[in-house]
């Protein structure tokens, strides 16, 4: 039998009750054809160290639980094949910019707190029950790229604005706000724009497109942010103009 190649990893560990609480630990795993990183981590947890902690659930890149940093890049462990990483030791670290709770598990509450703030569910317009909400194919397609988000937090881990200050809403959340703004069935319009019209919202973004580059589901948050900025400016310009013209009317009387 041909011996399968060995996968060498170095994992950044953290346990607050240990001294020191943070350390690097080396592991090695016998690979099999087509093995992915999550599988390798699960094998370590099963066979070598039951205390190694990380999040996972679906194993199929739909739940967004297993985001982590691999050789400096942010990925979902479940869809990262180990095949391309067998040359040298692979460095595994938790998602950056979030507080670490244990090993590769980070506290994602900043993400979910912001998520709650934008009320990320349909605020439907009143409809005739027999017709329900009719949407055209074009309208659906416009929302499509923003629906793909799985809240994995990878975009937060590369976002300079989130790194600078945790109250920044974050790319995924702003993309989600835009998704409801685009949705013809949602009655909110101004409300959504107002909720992101500040420096922790669309104006905090550095527009460096890092989030667009790393998103595992190809969601383009920066595009959403730029489009919302334009809409806000348009609104403001329109209201300025109407105020100005009413002012002119008054003065001419």
């Amino acid at each position: 039998m041909i011996k399968t190649p060995t996968f060498f990893l170095k994992i950044k560990r953290y346990h607050p009750e240990k001294d020191p609480p943070c350390w690097m630990e080396a592991f090695k795993v016998e690979t099999r054809k087509g093995m992915n990183l999550l599988e390798a981590l699960l094998r370590i947890q099963d066979e070598q160290d039951g205390t190694l902690s990380f999040r996972y659930s679906c194993r199929g890149a739909v739940c967004g639980s297993c985001a982590m940093m691999v050789n400096g890049e942010l990925v979902l462990a479940c869809r990262t094949p180990v095949g391309g990483m067998l040359e040298e030791t692979t460095l595994i670290e938790p998602l950056p910019f979030f507080p670490v709770i244990r090993d590769l598990i980070v506290d994602m509450s900043p993400l979910f707190e912001h998520f709650r703030k934008i009320e990320p569910y349909l605020h439907g317009k009143p409809v005739m029950p027999e017709r329900e909400h009719i949407m055209t194919e074009e309208e659906r397609k416009a929302i499509d790229p923003y629906i793909q988000c799985i809240l994995c937090g990878i975009c937060f881990g590369v976002c300079p604005a989130f790194n600078r200050e945790a109250p920044f809403f974050g790319p995924a959340i702003l993309a989600k706000a835009f998704r409801f703004l685009l949705d013809p069935r949602d009655r909110r319009d101004k409300e959504i724009l107002e909720s992101v019209n500040h420096h922790q919202g669309v104006w905090g973004c550095n527009t460096v497109f890092q989030c667009v580059k790393v998103c595992p589901k190809e969601v383009p948050p920066t595009h959403a942010i730029v489009k919302m900025r334009r809409k806000i400016l348009k609104y403001q310009l329109a209201s300025l103009f109407s105020r100005f013209s009413s002012l002119c009317r008054i003065s001419s009387k």
């Binding site: 099963d46 039951g50 205390t51 190694l52 709770i101 598990i105």
Partner: peptide
């Protein structure tokens, strides 16, 4: 047997 005695992040216990 389970090595970890505490409940938090006790994967062995979950398994």
């Amino acid at each position: 047997g389970i090595k970890q005695k505490k409940l938090a992040f006790n994967n062995e216990w979950i398994q």
